[in-house]
């Protein structure tokens, strides 16, 4: 049976979330999506994810596997993905079992209905994949989600919406071996106007607001293809030169010494403005 994407704007007051997919009791809350988007491939991808990563330590590792595959199987425009109702539908109605498997029963309701992109079980993966993909390639998405601190912090850092900068930052972090503790102070510097203007100047990206691979959006994804090798849309691609330019600009303006001297407030020494709390 073909299953389609819908929207849930508000849950009933007496909503009870279980792990049952497409529960009858929530059906009245479901509104139709603006166009027909099938979820069959995504359903298979999520089944495979749960089977592949089981329980325990591998839960976090499942993010870097699922993020590209979620993006490749849920073919939405940015405008469509901006609707909170889509994400509530996916988490509460379509795949509540994934939410409980990944985040636990206690946090199910809060996470399933949150609008916070850093916290929603599906939204964070999709938007993270959108941020770090390079055209059809999801290689950098896997790299970004292999460290949850990088993905989470990036999602609230505006300059990372410049794709060449996002990919340049990943390489910068890897090159300078910046551990989890140092991602926040890096993000603090990336948020200053003095730094963002240098990065935007180095990598202007006016095509980002106009290009759209409509053929990819219209193509029905096949589950096995996505499980084996997910492929993204052609739009939103940056060249190696552009990433290199971003990386050079980062080397110029990021104060590495200051980052390395950062201590978290609870370390009892110096402190700097903190970023987002980790999710895991």
């Amino acid at each position: 049976m073909t299953i389609s994407l819908g929207k849930i704007s508000a849950l009933p007051e007496d909503a009870f979330l279980s792990v049952e997919r497409f529960p009858e009791r929530l059906r009245d809350a479901v509104l139709p999506f603006d166009r027909e988007v099938h979820l069959d491939a995504l359903s298979s991808v999520i089944d495979e994810c749960i089977a592949r990563f089981g329980t325990g330590k591998t839960l976090t590792q499942s993010d870097s596997w699922l993020a590209p595959r979620l993006h490749a199987s849920l073919r939405l425009t940015k405008r469509e993905a901006a609707s909170a109702a889509v994400w509530t539908f996916l988490a509460t109605f379509a795949f509540p079992d994934y939410v409980v498997w990944r985040w636990g029963k206690d946090r199910q309701l809060a996470l399933s209905t949150t609008r916070d992109v850093k916290k929603h079980p599906f939204k964070r993966l999709w938007w993270g994949a959108e941020m770090f993909r390079n055209g059809p390639s999801y290689d950098s998405v896997e790299q970004a989600f292999s460290r949850s601190d990088v993905a989470n912090t990036s999602l609230s850092t505006r300059v990372m919406n410049n794709r060449a900068v996002a990919l340049g930052v990943l390489r910068f972090i890897e090159k300078h071996a910046l551990g989890s503790r140092l991602v926040n102070p890096l993000s603090t510097q990336l948020r200053t106007a003095a730094v963002t203007v240098v990065l935007d100047n180095a990598c202007p990206n006016y095509a980002e607001s106009i290009e759209l691979d409509r053929a990819w959006l219209r193509t029905e994804p096949l589950a096995q293809d996505i499980i084996d090798d997910p492929t993204g849309p052609e739009h939103g691609a940056v060249s190696e030169d552009e990433i290199e330019m971003a990386q050079q600009a980062l080397e110029q303006v990021i104060d590495l010494e200051r980052i390395r001297s950062y201590r978290k407030p609870h370390d009892g020494t110096t402190s700097q403005p903190n970023g987002e709390a980790e999710q895991h």
């Binding site: 505006r158 980002e208 607001s209 106009i210 759209l212």
Partner: peptide, 24 residues
């Protein structure tokens, strides 16, 4: 969405056209 463009300057002025898709 974050799109940026460098505009050419001439005597303290610049002009440009910004285009965006509704789907973005």
């Amino acid at each position: 969405l974050r799109a940026t463009e460098r505009l050419a300057l001439r005597e303290g002025k610049a002009q440009g056209t910004l285009s965006f898709s509704r789907d973005l």
